[in-house]
Amino acid sequence: MRFLPIAFCALAALTALPAVGQPVEKMAWLAGCWQGHFGEPGTVEQWLAPAGGTMLGMSRTIKQGKTAEYEFMHIRQLPEGVLAFVPQPNGRPPTVFRLLRLGESDALFENPEHDFPQRIHYARPAESRLVASIEGMRNGTMRRVEFAFSRVSCDAQAAGPGNK
């Protein structure tokens, strides 16, 4: 069991596709509604299916009954043919993270010039599970933060925890 994460990473590396020339449709595995396990009910991330050359996403983190953080995101192909993940956390200006590696159900994006994080990774280890992580140097120390999600019905999320 100890070797399962190593085997998963090795398999992902073997099946990873080159970063250039990948259409956004290769990210379709990310589409759907995902309930976060790191906040209160209502903590979600939702991704629309690929269409028109983009995937649109949004997230919301609830703490003490209030929205503590939110983020608008999109994935699109840059003019040079590389996919990019472009987040806008809490209304800040967008930051471009270029695709470094794309597998069957995982993607690694990087922006070495960004303060923190420099890498953003999405992996779907099972149909009903999603793990997102951010990592990079912060104040001279390597830091990694992981966010675990479970797939939920988008209709259930539309109702919200207090709107049923």
Results as ranks from 00 to 15, higher is better:
156 A>Y: 07
122 Y>T: 09
133 S>C: 04
36 G>L: 04
49 A>H: 04
68 A>N: 11
102 L>D: 01
88 Q>A: 12
66 K>W: 09
125 P>V: 02
53 G>N: 11
127 E>H: 08
85 F>Y: 15
44 V>Q: 07
69 E>M: 15
140 G>P: 11
144 R>P: 02
95 T>K: 14
29 W>L: 06
118 Q>A: 14
148 A>S: 09
111 N>S: 04
119 R>A: 06
160 G>W: 11
152 V>N: 05
136 G>Q: 03
162 G>E: 13
59 S>D: 08
33 C>D: 09
42 G>D: 07
10 A>R: 00
107 A>D: 09
157 Q>P: 03
22 Q>M: 14
58 M>R: 13
164 K>M: 14
4 L>C: 06
151 R>T: 03
60 R>I: 04
162 G>K: 14
36 G>S: 11
58 M>A: 11
32 G>D: 06
117 P>K: 13
44 V>D: 10
150 S>D: 14
150 S>H: 07
149 F>M: 05
154 C>P: 01
87 P>M: 10
44 V>M: 08
122 Y>K: 10
77 Q>F: 11
26 K>S: 15
152 V>M: 15
154 C>Q: 11
22 Q>F: 12
33 C>Y: 06
37 H>P: 01
61 T>G: 06
31 A>W: 10
144 R>D: 01
28 A>V: 05
124 R>N: 06
123 A>S: 14
108 L>M: 10
156 A>W: 13
11 L>F: 01
146 E>T: 10
159 A>C: 14
39 G>C: 07
140 G>I: 12
94 P>Y: 10
52 G>Q: 12
125 P>C: 03
50 P>L: 12
125 P>T: 01
102 L>W: 06
102 L>M: 07
105 S>D: 13
75 I>V: 15
76 R>P: 06
3 F>H: 11
10 A>G: 00
110 E>P: 02
104 E>M: 10
31 A>I: 06
149 F>H: 12
66 K>P: 10
136 G>I: 01
80 E>P: 08
76 R>V: 10
74 H>C: 13
89 P>L: 08
